[in-house]
Nucleic acid binder design. Structure first.
Lengths: 173, 173
DNA sequence: GTCCATGCAAACCTTTTGCACTATA
DNA sequence: TATAGTGCAAAAGGTTTGCATGGAC
């Protein structure tokens, strides 16, 4: 069949699996079915997946892998830098592979519908440089989330209610 | 004694307590001893306090307030916008009052010693404007943390080991 | 054959909740 | 006095760990 994947040599193994296997070998760790399966689920999706999402996707593929193994594999994927871990304040973490056209990006999260959109920001490099020069701080990893109302929710007429004090931020004490 | 606080009229009540009390009254909620005590601890400190920190500080003042009450009061303080909630990835939240000379600021966190330093960034406003114009997203709240090595740790000779893949970020799939 | 991974269940930790009792307004 | 808060302990929910078994190399 013309749609059959070419399995000659390494060609049948997708790049992300080769990279993950390389990482595991470098660390002297075995490449297991479960580890490959978790990686496959992550790299097959462009969403920000929770552990439950991953477990569900695995089950949908007929694989029954324990949560503990998923957590342990995610730890390896994050260490390998093939996967990024995020916390959008939902009480649990989400995971996203980093082999996209936009390996470095930030997130805006709609506080109404929860939709996560990615965007790039070179202003961040400027901020990091300033931090380096002005404070002698050596940046390694950053984390920028912007919470607000997405276009769709605004157009649907959603408005945000502010119940906080209107102007408590006077610089007094 | 000349150092004794002036207790005439409202003058003895510090501004933050007046603001918190105003918020509570606005919401039709009672002003209780416990709520005032939690607020006092937060406003007396310029650190980023965990719930345990707060409980300990209260105990040090001879007040024994249940964790549940602390959590419930923190919720009110955050809603009132007098206090900001942070998650530095430690597995628990930290809280910081917002009546400082720098009510809006970001954080850099040293991955070695855990020290948190604050800095301001007007580049962030530029980012938010871009997000608004380019994506129609209405920003409400932002969250920027920069993780890295603080000056002191660098000077102490600390180096960070990278165990991840050196260059996995090729834009291939 | 050795070493490590897996799976299950129990443990862990922070945060939330239910309920009898107490304090605020 | 009505209404809401407090404190305790239990529950909840995500994540980690111990241990016996099974798989990778």
């Amino acid at each position: 069949m013309s749609q059959t994947r070419d399995v000659t040599a390494d060609q049948g193994t997708p790049p992300f699996l080769r990279l993950f296997a390389r990482y595991l070998r470098d660390q002297g760790l075995p490449v297991t079915q479960q580890r490959e399966a978790v990686a496959e689920v992550l790299f097959a999706s462009d969403e920000h997946l929770s552990v439950d999402d991953i477990e569900r996707a695995l089950r949908g593929r007929g694989e029954r892998i324990g949560k503990a193994t998923i957590y342990r594999t995610l730890d390896l994927l994050v260490r390998s830098r093939l996967v990024a871990e995020h916390d959008f304040g939902e009480g649990f973490k989400r995971y996203e592979h980093r082999l996209s056209a936009r390996p470095v990006h930030e997130h805006m999260i709609c506080v109404e519908c929860g939709t996560v959109t990615e965007f790039e920001s070179n202003e961040l490099y400027r901020i990091e440089n300033r931090v380096k020069n002005e404070h002698g701080f050596l940046p390694v990893r950053r984390n920028l989330e912007i919470y607000g109302l997405c276009k769709a929710c605004q157009e649907a007429g959603v408005e945000l209610t502010t119940e906080g004090l209107i102007c408590p931020i006077e610089t007094v004490r």
